[in-house]
Write a protein that binds this DNA or RNA. Structure first.
Length: 300
DNA sequence: ATCCAGGCCCGAT
DNA sequence: ATCGGGCATGGA
């Protein structure tokens, strides 16, 4: 992976295990817009990023080498060798082999903790287009303008302090629905210093999970998503309906299986790589509707 | 119109 | 411990 600067753009040549669409559209983040194929706008880390593919180059428009080193390298997890991750998973069983092959350009993002927490609180019992809309509404109302593209203004996700100004009513106006009160509790507990990054990094994944679940509206699924998508806890295994289905289908002979059993199985089988396995499997399951009542095919 | 969505809370067993 | 109903909202 060679990095260079061309004018005001930053260029990566032959990016390893990185397909923009696969990384963005696999359900881990909500603040992006597709312009054309492999050409996206991302709002993250207080920045507006136009990123696109041009032949064997991945272009970060108007991006300095400093911003890449300080922000995007970590955000896109470019410090990790995904070839090793994929090889290890692919060797575990044929299901994972197929799931990895299906989307070899997924990387697990390292998103901002607070944004990730609020976003996944909003995700519960909701659909992705609606989640994106609510997060965008909150950002426009409480965040700062980060830039403009094609005449459209974009707003960063608010900080804890900025969102502290919100009340339940205004969050309802942002279409958060019954989750508005959950957001209020999360903002309060973050503001009270319950989730300082220094303290969190001293906790085991299980301890951190319990602490996150002290927030009203945060259960095991949201807690695991936050740990995996913003805190690099790759031993977290977010288990939603799709993961439940794909795990039951392939590892429990099609039998409906409890959350506890599934997480136990994941820990044993995917040890150390649970989070990566989860994301490839989730993506695979959702695409082929594995285990869903209207299954598209026998998944292959 | 009814059903359901990357769940979780809450009250009943 | 585990189970089922209810929940704001909008698209199919």
């Amino acid at each position: 992976m060679e990095i260079s600067e061309k004018g005001s753009n930053l260029i990566i040549k032959n990016a390893d295990s990185f397909v923009i669409s696969q990384t963005l559209e696999c359900g881990q983040c909500f603040r992006f817009e597709k312009l054309t194929d492999e050409n996206y706008i991302i709002v993250a880390m207080g920045k507006l990023l136009h990123i696109f593919k041009n032949g064997d180059e991945t272009v970060f428009e108007n991006t300095s080498k400093d911003d890449f080193e300080n922000i995007w390298k970590s955000y896109f997890d470019f410090g990790r060798d995904y070839k090793t991750v994929k090889d290890r998973l692919s060797a575990m069983d044929n299901t994972l082999l197929d799931a990895v092959k299906y989307a070899p350009g997924i990387r697990i993002l390292k998103q901002d903790f607070f944004e990730c927490l609020i976003s996944f609180i909003i995700s519960q019992n909701n659909r992705i287009p609606m989640i994106k809309k609510v997060v965008a509404n909150i950002s426009e109302k409480y965040g700062k303008e980060t830039g403009e593209f094609n005449g459209i203004k974009y707003y960063s996700f608010p900080s804890i302090q900025e969102l502290s100004k919100a009340d339940e009513e205004s969050l309802m106006e942002c279409k958060a629905g019954f989750r508005a009160k959950y957001i209020m509790d999360a903002v309060k507990k973050c503001g009270d210093g319950m989730f300082e990054s220094k303290d969190m990094s001293a906790l085991t994944t299980e301890e951190l999970r319990k602490r996150l679940m002290q927030i009203n509206g945060v259960g095991p699924k949201v807690a695991d998503c936050v740990m995996l998508f913003s805190l690099s806890r790759s031993d977290a295994f977010p288990t939603d309906v799709w993961v439940k289905r794909v795990m039951s289908y392939f590892y429990f002979d099609g039998n409906d299986t409890s959350l506890k059993e599934i997480q136990k199985m994941a820990k044993e089988r995917f040890s150390g790589y649970e989070g990566f396995a989860q994301q490839y499997l989730f993506n695979y399951a959702r695409e082929f509707k594995i285990g869903a009542s209207d299954k598209k095919a026998g998944a292959k």
